[in-house]
Design a protein around this nucleic acid. Structure first.
Lengths: 244, 244
DNA sequence: AATTAATGTGTTATAATTACATATCTGTAA
DNA sequence: TTACAGATATGTAATTATAACACATTAATT
């Protein structure tokens, strides 16, 4: 919400002048995308003087008539133009001094989007994709929030077919494997990986091949519709001692 | 917090008369205990007329100078006398109409305590332990909160040695197995269970036996100190298709 | 002394995981 | 057109983990 706060200084004033209910509530969105074999996060340049030069997550204060998820969707829509994205609540961050302008408790969500499909209106904002490996310091406690969300994402992709929200509708097994590798930070054996995915029975072979790749094209697949969006799967895979 | 709210009607009034920052924040604690081979939850009789006769979780509004975990500890201490308990944040609940007296977002924590070791001051409050199987309707959205926390607890005990917070310092393998069964709602094979626990290497054999049991006494064990409180374990066990 | 009820322990069959190599196909560059 | 580079596609064997299962032993109770 931190950037939202910036834009609404009047309200912050109001908060800090109340003697009891002076805690504001925000949501912050960790928006993950995948491009160039790297997991990326959408960040905005912080406009708080305290955090000059640093990037922060997208967030805003909660409004009276909306719940947290609605607020997250609103922020995604307003700031990026995105709709219908995968969104999951992760954790509430509440350190008393986490916001320089006053007491703000924030609830973190992570979101998974297909960078290339969703056309973001990145230009007018100070929005940029950052590879997770390149991110050092962030404004507020956003580095902690990011790390927490990333940890949750890693856990999630090992249990549920949420990863497909990061890929285009049609994708090759190589793309899928590279994405798992980017998220988990490990190398996977190609034959074992394919066996596991095939056991999962998540994919339909649509009898098409990759195009415009600088090598022999592989088959492309779609996710079976019943696994679109969120889903619970009974049993997890295990790869290299990790439950996948 | 809902009962806390009750006691602070003045502040509620204040909230609802504000036009913008009129969202209150509370924590609610799902306090799990284990007794008589049953997983139990500590509940308090709701004093809201809207929920007459129903029980609710223990909660209270957040104060300006405390974070969410501190608030949870404060509530546990104030309402039950408990200190040094295992506590874990689970989820924020934010439905606009979840509280009849106004807009309140609550963050749920679950707590694990050894019922017989911690002497609760249950008497003066309307506090009672309820077996999870016996709980039907609860005040507010507390049934949803309870279910969410129980789900998280089930997930947690399959991955980390948090379950020992529910047991006395010394316990037998039978007690441990019965506790897993109570939490997970499954029957486990004794020999396989013992093998898995022994592979985990969580326990020390303190060379003592059960006493005052109406049958052949079993050995009692302690948790190795390095696994006390929270802990991450590299690999999970799997029992009956469930990762244990 | 007999009975009851729980402890303590090991093997076998099945399933899952890991490590690993070769033939094939396509695009690109000579 | 040919050779080369780089990726696809595929299966087996060794190891490890899991699930199912039975019997002798111990202590308390009658």
């Amino acid at each position: 919400m931190e950037n939202g706060l910036q834009l609404k200084t009047a309200e912050i004033e109001k908060i800090s002048h109340l003697d009891y209910f002076n805690i504001a509530i925000s949501v912050d969105c960790v928006i993950f995308g995948y491009d160039q074999k790297e997991l990326k996060v959408l960040l905005i340049k912080s406009d708080l003087s305290e955090f000059a030069g640093l990037y922060s997550l997208l967030g805003d204060l909660i409004r009276t008539q909306e719940n947290l998820k609605e607020a997250s969707y609103r922020i995604l829509k307003e700031r990026t133009g995105l709709e219908d994205v995968y969104l999951e609540q992760v954790h509430a961050f509440s350190a008393v001094d986490r916001h320089p302008s006053g007491r703000v408790i924030t609830i973190a969500y992570y979101s998974l989007i297909d960078i290339n499909h969703h056309k973001l209106k990145l230009s007018h904002n100070e929005l940029h994709w950052h590879a997770i490996g390149d991110i050092k310091k962030l404004a507020f406690d956003h580095r902690l929030i990011l790390d927490t969300c990333l940890e949750r994402l890693r856990q999630q992709v090992l249990e549920n077919p949420v990863i497909f929200n990061l890929l285009p509708e049609k994708f090759s097994l190589r793309q899928l494997q590279e994405l798992y590798q980017a998220i988990l930070g490990v190398k996977l054996d190609r034959r074992n990986f394919r066996k596991k995915i095939s056991v999962k029975d998540w994919l339909v072979d649509i009898d098409e091949m990759e195009e415009n790749v600088p090598h022999r094209p592989g088959k492309v697949y779609k996710l079976k519709p019943e696994f679109r969006k969120k889903n619970r799967i009974s049993k997890s895979l295990v790869i290299n001692g990790m439950t996948l």
